[in-house]
């Protein structure tokens, strides 16, 4: 493998002024998107019953004076545009308000729930890309044969099954009938596991959520990988690789797949947003203490503030991930000039 020389070649592209300009430009775009999201938040607050202070304080046990001073602070007597600017200023400092249900700031609550969601989403992204690509490559290599048809049928089924239905069917099979896996929570409460036993416990709790969340996205990547592999395998440089006397493995994985991965990376960046949305459902079904579950709880306690906080942080996460994916793509594809 000649990864070393690739890295040298790649490296020289990445330590120059172009990088700064690239990052600056993408950050500006991200900022604009976040401003839009903040606007959406504000509009939703205005749509919610009650005014902004009702929302911010929840069904509060604050004193009347405290509420009055908050009203003043938010300038509810002032024009909408002033309220808008003040709200922005607070959000920009990550002041997402206070939740009376949890007796904590919204930011703290979300930060406490973030790791679970990240764990779930990260495992699902990786697993769906890996399995999807493997399935897609296998289908492409046996295009038109039985393996291809079998994979295509499976993909069709995965593609049509909402993640929460997969989750429920899995609970039915693996918990209700077989009794293999726990149905809810992130770890066994009261078991007091430590060290390796704790990791094993968490893993057992995460298997079904991750697999359930994966299925739909596995189908997407599998379809994409099959199509791009079929396309790539007919390209001239793959023929060149064969003409060089490389092994079939090397031709498929070193040359064809390496190029076919590029659209998969792009797709992964586009799907992260949707995947985080799916995590809301999965966390709710499996009772995982993550952001999605928090949003769900917030609806039923009418904690609009917490709800919007989750939306804000989730959107921020998507923005950050797409920045990372753009950069990763530029690393993988030398033709992308960072400009």
């Amino acid at each position: 493998m000649t990864a070393g020389s690739v890295r040298i070649g790649g490296g020289s592209r990445f330590f120059n002024g172009a990088v700064l300009r690239f990052v600056a430009r993408r950050l500006l775009q991200a900022l604009i998107v976040m401003l839009m999201v903040m606007t959406a938040n504000f509009v939703l607050i205005k749509l919610a019953p009650g005014d902004i202070v009702d929302v911010l304080t929840g069904s509060s046990d604050m004193t009347a004076e405290q509420i009055a001073s908050l009203r003043q602070e938010y300038g509810l007597d002032q024009p909408v545009i002033v309220q808008f600017v003040k709200y922005f200023a607070r959000l920009a400092q990550f002041d997402l308000g206070y939740s009376n249900q949890f007796h904590d700031t919204v930011l703290n609550i979300i930060l406490g729930r973030l790791p679970t969601t990240l764990l779930l989403v990260a495992f699902s992204v990786i697993l769906s890309i890996v399995i999807g690509t493997v399935m897609g490559v296998a289908a492409a290599r046996s295009a038109g044969k039985l393996v291809d048809s079998a994979i295509s049928a499976l993909v069709l089924l995965f593609y049509a099954t909402p993640v929460f239905i997969v989750a429920i069917v899995m609970i039915l099979c693996f918990s209700v009938w077989l009794g293999w896996l726990p149905t809810s929570g992130l770890y066994s409460v009261g078991a007091g596991h430590t060290g390796f036993a704790y990791i094993k416990d968490v893993a057992a709790h995460l298997v079904m959520p991750v697999v359930a969340l994966c299925t739909f996205y596995t189908a997407i990547y599998s379809r994409l990988a099959r199509a791009t592999m079929l396309e790539t395998m007919h390209l001239d440089f793959v023929r060149t690789a064969r003409a060089k006397g490389l092994s079939e493995r090397r031709v498929i994985y070193g040359h064809a797949l390496r190029n076919a991965l590029l659209p998969i990376v792009t797709m992964a960046g586009l799907q992260v947003s949707s995947l985080i949305g799916g995590a809301v459902l999965i966390e709710t079904v499996f009772g995982l203490p993550g952001m999605g579950r928090t949003a769900f709880d917030a609806i039923f306690t009418r904690d609009t503030n917490l709800l919007l906080g989750v939306m804000f942080i989730a959107s921020l996460a998507v923005v950050v991930v797409s920045l990372v994916v753009d950069f990763l793509y530029a690393l993988l594809d030398p033709r992308v000039e960072l400009k």
């Binding site: 775009q29 604009i32 998107v33 839009m36 999201v37 959406a40 939703l44 749509l47 919610a48 947003s273 949707s274 995947l275 985080i276 949305g277 799916g278 809301v280 459902l281 999605g292 949003a295 769900f296 917030a298 609806i299 609009t304 709800l307 919007l308 989750v310 939306m311 989730a314 959107s315 998507v318 923005v319 797409s322």
Partner: peptide, 22 residues
């Protein structure tokens, strides 16, 4: 840019929030 922003917000979460608020 508006389209970007809407696509950034996780769509199912956004739907949950909208229904939750409205």
């Amino acid at each position: 840019r508006i389209t970007d922003a809407v696509q950034t917000i996780p769509s199912f979460l956004a739907a949950v929030v909208i229904v939750g608020v409205v």
